[in-house]
Structures are given as structure tokens and as C-alpha cells.
């Protein structure tokens, strides 16, 4: 009671100065505050922001027509969440509505199992994860000719997300396969804070809060190794992809105040599995990231990923796109609250 009264008096009598939000909950997950507030209006010390995304809420790298082949080193999304939670961090799952079952993890094209709504709720409740939209049916919006189609693919995904306990999914929209053009960007920008576009540049507030409200995102790739002396340097990989340069990504994850870095991963693995030439294989065993390889562009080594994350600007606020949208005043014009039918 006294504490409450003291807090109340503090609220009444404190001068209008910057003060940290006291709300880091000792609850089941740790959610960092969104930044520093001030009593005079806008934030006097613009924080640096980082968002960690996981595309299409892939649960785990698998193989086989029915996804029955699961290598021991294939990390689940929850294991990734635990890795981040160990660092006091949370990530954002990008959700494709039609690929998300209520409680079962579905097999998608034999290369990944998909997180269920129950999984996502668990990630939210236990690890503080959020969810943003990656569309209703993963359709190419550049070929759509009507707003009804665009709405069905983008804005309509917000209702099921809210219904499943993610009412703040409006923070960003991820176009299927990164395919976008001015029409689809303009439409999506009416309902979402930002639209994801792959890039290796950091976001600035000025650019991100101006149309088309791009959320430049580094898409983390696996693939060939970086050591010319090894066979993995020239091994066959889809689109001849080479795994991400850890040093470059570490640099990217060091935004300045007022900047925002967004890193998107897919499926993480560890150890070794298979051999060069296999479609479901990797070797993450080397202590040197340059020697590591994976067989698919969307499979990355866990240790490489964590080295990137650990090399980030530790002063940066790691939070979800919605929080940043609110912090930067980027609430979409057609935002009508939630829940929606």
C-alpha cells in the first residue's frame, strides 16, 4: 500500500524528465521497454532499435516427403526462442495464416514443419515473442488487380492474428517472396506500420515513417562456405548462395541511435548432418564461421546466428516492429483497433 502510495506520489510529483519505464515484468517472459520517454513529448534520446524476425514461422528444418526426416541438429523455433531468451531477447514470428494449424505442426513441402497457433501462443506466453503478418495465403501481390484481393491477402490476416492473441500484428507486413511494387506497398501501408523489403541497409526513422514505409530487412542466408580452400566453397547450392558473412551482419546489427536494424532468419541448425551434395545437410562444426556451410539458403548455422546477435549494439533496444511503429508514430491510417471480424 505504501509502495503503491509512494509510486502514486512519484507519479504526481515527479518533474517532467526522462525516466525509464519501470515495467520490465518479472513474469514468465522478459519484455524490454520500448525506449526512453520524456515529459516534454518526443523521446529526447532516440534509441537504436533491432528487430529479430523468423520468416514464415518455420518450426524446424526437416526432410522427406512427410517431413519425417529430422536431423538431430535441426533446431526448433522454441529452441531458438530459448537461445534468445537466455540473452534477454525476444523475436517476432512472421505468420502465414493458411499455413498455421490450430495445434498440429504441419509439413510444408518436405523441407519444414510449420508452427501451430498453439506453438505461437506458447512462444508469446513463455518467451515474449510477438507475431507479424506474412499474409493470408502467401500470394504474390504484384499480380493482383483489385483491392479486394489485396485486402484478403494482407489486412484480412490481422483478424485471425488478433483472434489468436496477437492484436499487434499490424506492425509490419512481409510480402510473399519479397515480391512487391508500388500498388501493393501503398495498399498494405494503409493497414500496417511497415512493409518488409530485403536490404542490407539499416532503417532510419525519417525514411521508415515516409511512404512506402519500408522496413529494410537483412534476410539471413545459408549456403556455401567462405573458405576457398574447402570443397564447400564451390559446392552446389540453390541460386549459388553463400552463407551470410557473420562480420558484415554483426556490423549491420550495430545501429546508431535513430536507426533500426532488422534481421530475419529461417531455420537454424547445429553440428553436422549429411555431406556436400545432399539437399538436407550442413556442417556448422568449425569454430570459424568461414568454414561453415549448409545445403539450403534458408538453413543457417545456429552458432553463426548467435555470433551475429551477440555482436550487436548492446545499447540497442531489441523489440518488435509494432513497438517501433508506435514509438516512431507510424500508425497506419486505416488502423481501426481490434479485434475485427
Amino acid at each position: 500500500m505504501l509502495v503503491a502510495a509512494a509510486l502514486g506520489l512519484l507519479a504526481l510529483s515527479s518533474p517532467a524528465v526522462a525516466r525509464p519505464d519501470p515495467g520490465v515484468a518479472p513474469g514468465p517472459f522478459s519484455r524490454p521497454g520500448p525506449g526512453i520517454t520524456s515529459g516534454t513529448g518526443r523521446e529526447v534520446a532516440e534509441p537504436a532499435y533491432i528487430s529479430l524476425l523468423f520468416s514464415r514461422s518455420n518450426w524446424q528444418a526437416v526432410s522427406g516427403a512427410d517431413c519425417s526426416i529430422v536431423a538431430p541438429g535441426a533446431r526448433t523455433l522454441e529452441q531458438n526462442a530459448q537461445d534468445l531468451a537466455d540473452r534477454g531477447l525476444s523475436a517476432t514470428a512472421l505468420v502465414v495464416i493458411n499455413r498455421t494449424a490450430a495445434a498440429d505442426r504441419t509439413c510444408f513441402r518436405g523441407y519444414t514443419s510449420q508452427a501451430s497457433w498453439a506453438d505461437l501462443a506458447h512462444l508469446r506466453d513463455s518467451y515474449g515473442w510477438s507475431a507479424n503478418s506474412q499474409g493470408t495465403a502467401y500470394r504474390d501481390m504484384t499480380v493482383m488487380t483489385s483491392d479486394a484481393e489485396r485486402f484478403a491477402e494482407s489486412a484480412a490476416s490481422l483478424a485471425p492474428l488478433a483472434a489468436h492473441g496477437f492484436p499487434r500484428a499490424w506492425g509490419s507486413f512481409a510480402f510473399a517472396n519479397n515480391k512487391q511494387e508500388s500498388l501493393s506497398q501503398a495498399f498494405v501501408g494503409r493497414y500496417f506500420g511497415f512493409v518488409r523489403r530485403y536490404d542490407s541497409l539499416r532503417n532510419s526513422r525519417a525514411e521508415a515513417t515516409a511512404a512506402p514505409y519500408l522496413m529494410r530487412t537483412w534476410s539471413l542466408n545459408g549456403g556455401r562456405c567462405h573458405n576457398r580452400a574447402l570443397a564447400c566453397y564451390d559446392m552446389p547450392v540453390l541460386n549459388d548462395r553463400r552463407s551470410a558473412n557473420v562480420d558484415l551482419v554483426r556490423t549491420y546489427l550495430n545501429p546508431e541511435p535513430g536507426q533500426w536494424s532488422v534481421l530475419q532468419a529461417y531455420r537454424l541448425v547445429e553440428g553436422t548432418h549429411g555431406v556436400i551434395g545432399d539437399t538436407y545437410a550442413w556442417d556448422c562444426s568449425s569454430a570459424d564461421w568461414r568454414d561453415r556451410w549448409t545445403s539450403q539458403p534458408e538453413i543457417s548455422c545456429r552458432n553463426s546466428y548467435l555470433e551475429m546477435v551477440d555482436g550487436r549494439n548492446l545499447e540497442a533496444v531489441v523489440t518488435d516492429p509494432t513497438t517501433i511503429a508506435l514509438a516512431w508514430g507510424r500508425v497506419p491510417v486505416d488502423y481501426l483497433g481490434w479485434p475485427r471480424p
Binding site: A11, A16, G35, G39, T40, G41
Partner: peptide
């Protein structure tokens, strides 16, 4: 109250 940000406690 002129501030922008969240508060988990009442503010006048």
C-alpha cells in the same frame, strides 16, 4: 500528460 510511451501505473 504530454508524455509518449507506456506506463504500467496510473499517471494524472
Amino acid at each position: 500528460d504530454g508524455a509518449r510511451g507506456e506506463s504500467s501505473l496510473p499517471r494524472p
